[in-house]
Design a protein around this nucleic acid. Structure first.
Length: 205
DNA sequence: TGATGGATTAGCT
DNA sequence: GCTAATCCATCAG
């Protein structure tokens, strides 16, 4: 997929990414995932975006050129991957939430032995990254470069009536914007969880 | 400089 | 439905 196709507003970009294939090559083999669920995060206007509070070392990649991978670490143990959209100076990205494993199922299953679906689905953003073997070292990778370990490939287009939209998962801010998109009926789509205050934090004595 | 809580997941009740 | 696991960016003091 070319950079021009990706250098657009993250909301239409999110729709376009459904059905596309993300390929990750590692020492142990190749895994390909067909994207089934994504969410748009629109920089400066969006209180839920990592860019909302300005440019920092963590979100640096989002200010860079489109078509690069933004990887961040959450909850002390998980990675999430985004595809950067728009062009220089205009931050925005699409969070990759889930997909179907279309190649390298065994490898995917071995990387995530406890995941449901026997390696056929990557249901949830952190499952997706671990199945693909994506971690901090992949932050900033150019998805449009044939030599990159992670690449974005065009897939079968998804008919627009199969694309559904709704509120983003686990996000407290801007719950009214339907910037989560998924392929209706896909077994990979994650179950919706409302955002809000963190679940009760029990402090050990 | 210390506290807080998150674009989460899996396992248990 | 509830909670532990566990790093680090951000914010309050």
């Amino acid at each position: 997929m070319g950079r021009e196709e990706l250098a657009v507003d993250p909301v239409p970009l999110a729709r376009r990414l459904l059905g596309c294939v993300l390929e990750a090559r590692g020492d142990d083999g190749v895994v390909r995932v067909r994207l089934a669920e994504v969410e748009a995060y629109r920089g400066l206007d969006d209180p839920a975006s990592h860019c909302y509070r300005g440019r920092t070392a963590r979100n640096e990649v989002m200010w860079g050129p489109a078509g690069h991978l933004y990887v961040y670490f959450v909850y002390g143990m998980h990675f999430c991957a985004n595809i950067v959209g728009l062009s220089d100076g205009e931050p925005g990205a699409v969070l990759l939430r889930a997909g179907e494993v279309v190649e390298g199922r065994e490898l995917a299953a071995s990387r995530r032995p406890t995941a449901r679906g026997g390696g056929a689905v990557a249901k949830g953003p952190a499952v997706l990254t671990s199945v693909l073997g994506i971690d901090r070292s992949h932050n900033g990778v150019d998805l449009t470069d044939a030599g990159s370990p992670v690449r974005l490939l065009a897939g079968r287009p998804v008919p627009s009536d199969r694309i559904h939209a709704g509120p983003r998962v686990g996000v407290a801010a801007a719950m009214d914007v339907p910037w989560r998109f998924w392929i209706a009926g896909s077994p990979a789509v994650s179950t919706y969880r409302r955002g809000g205050r963190a679940r009760t934090r029990v402090r050990r004595p």
